[in-house]
């Protein structure tokens, strides 16, 4: 059990560093989604199912969706199509 917990925790740190260092904003947000999903797993291991449900719906769903919609609006202001690279401007 400790092995699984350690694996998830190290994955968490790895995800956090990758989110920060990633050049493309879209990829960074997708990695942040993975981070939230793993976080909800960890909360399930910590015997808090309430938190796990909320984090899965809110962190992986709502927050990333808001980030994506903001990026879409910004790309629209730039006059680009939606899925183009955001940083190479």
């Amino acid at each position: 059990m400790i092995g699984l917990e350690l694996l998830l925790l190290i994955f968490l740190v790895f995800c956090a560093i990758a989110t920060v260092l990633c050049k493309r904003l879209v990829s960074a947000i997708i990695i942040f989604m993975a981070y939230s999903a793993v976080m909800s797993l960890i909360w399930f291991l910590l015997q808090s199912p309430d938190l796990a449900i909320t984090e899965a719906a809110v962190g992986a769903g709502m927050t990333s969706l808001l980030f994506f919609l903001t990026l879409q609006r910004i790309n629209q202001l730039k006059g680009l199509e939606q899925d183009e690279d955001n940083t190479k401007q």
Partner: peptide
């Protein structure tokens, strides 16, 4: 700025 907001979320979690 978006990375800054992600950093804030990391601190939260």
């Amino acid at each position: 700025l978006i990375k800054k907001i992600i950093g804030l979320n990391l601190m939260d979690t």
